[in-house]
Design a protein around this nucleic acid. Structure first.
Length: 800
DNA sequence: AGCACGCCGACT
DNA sequence: GTCGGCGTGCTC
């Protein structure tokens, strides 16, 4: 029997199936979806078995060396999905499969040198490596002295040493020690009567009837490890290791919740979903529900229905809003049937949660983007909450969108997909309009609360009337009022750091990164300038690098500066600041939020991350300091993002009994993306924005591909870019497809690499993937050996 | 990605 | 005449 294997070598030349013979002992045991160790050239590496066939067309087929799994880690469905994904994203099949397994299961290959003879036969300077044993790490021996390589090759030839490859998993299963009574319990009488503790342990074990966790027993009976070892030695009890899961939520209690009575609108909306579940058919729903309209309850009851018919559910949530509060809602309804997957977990914790899914110990998984690959075999529903969030698109290879993967799986399992949002992406809403998706509108809030009133303050007016601070008169007054009434406020700023850039007032010089074409950001805590792209950091200069003037100052304002300013104008206010800098440490996010929830602060000041999920009854005021900060970035989705963000943010106010107020400060208050937030008119925004997209030829009217070319030499980048563009123009349908560029990327240089890009806009281009593959193929050699990088992004969200 | 093979310049 | 530089091509 022959196994078709994808080997663990991410390169275009190896991105195909390799044939290996299945040794007779493993016939039937090795199945598609398992990981194996195979010889590859002179070394040993990991591979995924994709298929099993009778024969091979190859004459020299090596046997499989080892099997890493007892049961397949990739289901048949995931194997097919991986193939499709690598096609659609132009990435290696290997990379697609690696997405689907937790990082802990990815293997690394260790190269070891084994001593076969006696230590004294070795040259003296090599002996040191073998003093503690017969094994030494190749990397240790070589890193000391490069010339050792030659010597070792000779010693291997002489038969004194051997080089061996060892494939190891990165993560380990966690085990704990357990004890139980041994079979021969007649011996118990032999324990001396004065050995009280020993007798106590035995009777405890007799009573419990099942194995007992050693650590807990020691604690409970106030005994010691030594005593247990004694009993083991006497043969009265047996000690063994039992695999346990690392529980990231250990000790957290969840209050059980029961399904809520649905409003008539909710009932209307859930009907078609339940119907699809009964029919066992596939349909993508777009659940468009204003903030507070009870989307989550719809999710919960739909999932419940799926589970009751013996199926599983996947819930995707943007990383940023995957907070304990969110998890609690699912755990509260479905208890221990829920696994959680997100980046806050350690590698080991993710590994454990993932294995619960594989072993079917859970029925629901709640997680960020990659949870869409959960290895369930009987998926009944997939939910994507906050559907418009751009974090569902992975920016690294494979550049996939979780929505596309979800729909693929929905078709495979013939089950419904729910995309939920208060502000759907234009793409999804347009599809709903064309009835590709089934639109489910929820227009009212569950508790009948009105949407918060939104006021837009024209900051130009403020400036004209002499207010040069970053807070408008209106906002400042409202903040003061809340503090007086003991209510809470949220201030939102879409920037981090202290100030955006540093400029010389005399000559206009702006401090920029030496390695990237980007201005440096001032960070007050370290009193330094940082590059947000390459991490480069330098001291804040005392004088201008260009003219020597000392009038060098910060411009723009970040969260740190706002915080300072805030304590100046409102000294009585207690402020909590939340941005990447204050939440970097694990758990600090939750800490800050719960502190705010307990009312330990009056104002929560933060970036993007506070726009979501925040749900505290005492928040009655939301202020947006600079609504247009996002509007002017060169991205065709900037208006869409602005509207979505403003809507999200305003949804934070007045969610409960108290009425909410929203104040948006803007320098372009008449722009439709800001203006329409006042009336919360998603529909109107959609229509206006669609007109813009239509005239400028942007998605959803066309599809886009972004090709980014980078190299340390500018001339090289330009010639390659031009070659690519002329090739595309030659190959693609000239009448309906536009090839734009090449132009310098918005970030023309990052980490000393020049960057150019070109764009394709198309409606229907059957030869597209094929043509793009040819480009990849054509530059493989240069990419492999040289400094060239060509990145292709289908349906891009990032244009830097 | 590694690793071997092979071809060319610099040196004992 | 050999050592070692790295361009080229292969890995079932």
């Amino acid at each position: 029997m022959i196994a078709k294997v994808i080997v663990d070598v991410p390169a275009s030349q190896t991105d195909r199936l390799f044939d290996y013979e299945i040794p007779d002992v493993w016939t039937g045991a090795i199945q598609p979806g398992m990981r194996v160790v195979v010889p590859f050239g002179p070394r040993k590496i990991q591979g995924f078995v994709i298929a099993i066939e009778q024969e091979s067309d190859h004459d020299k087929v090596k046997p499989i060396e080892d099997v890493l799994d007892v049961t397949p880690v990739l289901t048949d469905e995931l194997l097919t999905l991986g193939e499709w994904l690598s096609d659609q994203t132009l990435s290696f099949k290997l990379s697609a499969y690696q997405l689907m397994i937790p990082a802990a299961m990815r293997t690394k290959v260790k190269k070891e040198i084994i001593l076969l003879g006696d230590v004294n036969q070795l040259p003296i300077h090599l002996q040191v490596f073998f003093h503690s044993g017969k094994k030494a790490l190749w990397s240790d021996v070589i890193s000391q002295e490069k010339a050792n390589m030659k010597l070792i090759q000779q010693l291997v030839k002489d038969g004194l040493l051997e080089v061996r490859y060892k494939v190891e998993e990165k993560g380990k299963k966690k085990t704990e020690r357990y004890i139980k009574l041994s079979e021969c319990d007649g011996l118990i009488e032999e324990i001396p009567t004065r050995a009280v503790k020993q007798r106590e342990i035995i009777s405890y074990l007799k009573e419990s009837k099942k194995p007992v966790h050693v650590q807990s027993l020691i604690k409970e009976l106030e005994t010691t490890r030594q005593l247990i070892t004694t009993l083991v030695k006497k043969g009265l009890i047996v000690e063994f290791e039992k695999e346990v899961y690392r529980d990231p939520l250990a000790g957290v209690e969840y209050e059980r919740t029961t399904p809520l009575q649905l409003t008539s609108q909710q009932q209307e909306v859930i009907g078609p979903i339940l119907h699809t579940l009964e029919d066992k058919s596939h349909q993508t729903f777009l659940l468009h529900g204003v903030t507070g309209s009870g989307k989550t309850e719809i999710y919960l009851q739909s999932i419940d229905k799926a589970l009751k018919s013996g199926k599983e559910a996947i819930v995707l949530v943007p990383e940023i809003s995957l907070t304990p509060q969110m998890v609690q809602r699912f755990k509260g309804r479905f208890g221990s049937k829920v696994a959680v997957l997100h980046s806050g977990l350690s590698m080991g914790e993710k590994y454990d949660e993932w294995r619960k899914i594989l072993r079917k110990e859970v029925e629901v998984v709640v997680g960020a983007r990659s949870a869409v690959f959960a290895p369930f075999t009987n998926v009944g529903i997939i939910i994507i909450d906050e559907e418009h969030e751009t974090s569902y698109k992975q920016e690294e290879n494979p550049k996939y969108h979780a929505r596309d993967v979800a729909i693929f799986r929905g078709e495979y399992h013939q089950c419904p997909i729910i995309l939920g949002s208060a502000t759907p992406s234009l793409e999804s809403y347009a599809r709903a309009m064309k009835e590709v998706y089934h639109l489910l509108p929820l227009t009212t809030r569950v508790n009948e609360r009105a949407m918060p009133s939104v006021e837009v303050v024209d900051m130009r007016e403020e400036l004209r009337s002499g207010n040069r601070s970053m807070f408008s008169e209106k906002l400042l007054q409202s903040l003061k009022e809340r503090i007086k009434k003991g209510e809470q406020s949220v201030l939102f700023l879409n920037r981090r750091g202290y100030s955006t850039f540093v400029m010389c007032r005399d000559c206009g010089y702006v401090a920029t990164c030496d390695h990237c074409d980007i201005s440096l950001t001032y960070h007050r805590t370290q009193h330094s300038l940082k590059c947000h792209y390459c991490g480069h950091e330098e001291k804040m200069p005392n004088s201008c690098d260009s003219c020597g003037s000392e009038h060098i100052r910060f411009f723009g304002s970040g969260t740190q500066k706002v915080e300072e300013e805030l304590t100046r104008v409102l000294p009585e206010a207690r402020v909590i600041r939340m941005d990447i800098d204050t939440t970097r440490r694990k758990g600090s996010h939750e800490k800050l939020l719960s502190s705010f929830g307990r009312g330990e602060a009056d104002i929560l000041l933060g970036t993007q991350m506070i726009a979501k999920g925040l749900d505290f009854p005492k928040i009655t005021l939301v202020g947006v300091l600079a609504a247009d900060s996002m509007l002017h970035i060169p991205d065709f989705r900037s208006a869409e993002r602005t509207f979505q963000l403003m809507e999200q943010v305003s949804g934070r106010a007045g969610r409960h009994d108290l009425e909410g107020q929203v104040i948006i400060q803007s320098y372009t208050p008449d722009h439709y993306s800001i203006e329409l937030v006042k009336s919360h008119s998603y529909e109107a925004f959609f229509q206006t924005e669609m007109m813009q997209r239509k005239t400028a030829l942007y998605p959803p009217y066309v599809f886009m591909v972004l090709i980014n070319i980078s190299h340390p030499e500018l001339t090289k980048v330009i010639t390659v870019s031009e070659k690519i563009v002329s090739f595309l123009k030659r190959e693609l349908t000239a009448s309906t497809t536009a090839v734009l560029g090449p132009v310098a990327s918005p970030l023309a240089r990052i980490k000393d690499r020049y960057r150019y890009q070109c764009m394709i806009k198309y409606r229907n281009e059957p030869r597209l993937l094929e043509t793009l593959r040819e480009i990849q193929q054509h530059f493989t050699r240069e990419i492999n050996q040289g400094q060239l990088q060509v990145s292709i992004d289908l349906h891009p969200y990032l244009f830097t």
